[in-house]
């Protein structure tokens, strides 16, 4: 790899960005409240449902995500760094097949996307994924 001044700048920016990602979102409590509203405070298991989301979103305005929740009757999606953490709730009807769905969402900044599923037996499952949102590209 050819080392140029520009590349060194990139490396610096990359390292700085990584350091920035370690900080947890300040709005976590807002999304906790929203999740509690959905679960009624019930304990949530992990490992049953999966969430597909990009590690890096090229633009936070349109981020493709998908959730696969076998055995779920309802799945709610939250974004813990958005001004309003609720994103969407999917209720699966009798003719729904896989208990999964995909959509495109808005993320205000780098944050965790959380999916919480209400299972057929009334228990709850959750999964979360961090999505890094790139800011500072060429707009307009």
């Amino acid at each position: 790899m050819e080392i140029t001044r520009r590349r060194i700048l990139e490396i610096g920016t990359g390292a700085f960005a990584c350091a920035g990602f370690l900080g947890l979102p300040a709005f976590a409590s807002l999304s906790d409240d929203a999740i509690t509203e959905f679960t009624g405070g019930a304990e949530m298991g992990e490992g049953v449902i999966t969430l597909t989301a990009p590690e890096i979103a090229e633009n936070g305005n349109t981020v493709p995500i998908g959730v696969d929740a076998p055995g779920a009757v309802e799945v709610s999606i939250f974004a813990d760094g958005n001004p309003e953490p609720k994103v969407a709730t999917f209720n699966f009807g009798p003719l729904s097949a896989s208990r999964g769905a995909s959509t495109r969402i808005r993320l205000a900044r780098t944050q965790n996307v959380v999916a919480v599923a209400k299972m057929e037996d009334g228990t709850f499952q959750m999964v979360s994924a961090e999505v890094k949102v790139t800011i500072g590209g060429c707009g307009g």
Partner: peptide
């Protein structure tokens, strides 16, 4: 018969 019923919040993209 219902297949899916979705509640959308403002975080759903344009």
């Amino acid at each position: 018969e219902n297949v899916i019923d979705v509640t959308l919040e403002p975080a759903i993209s344009t």
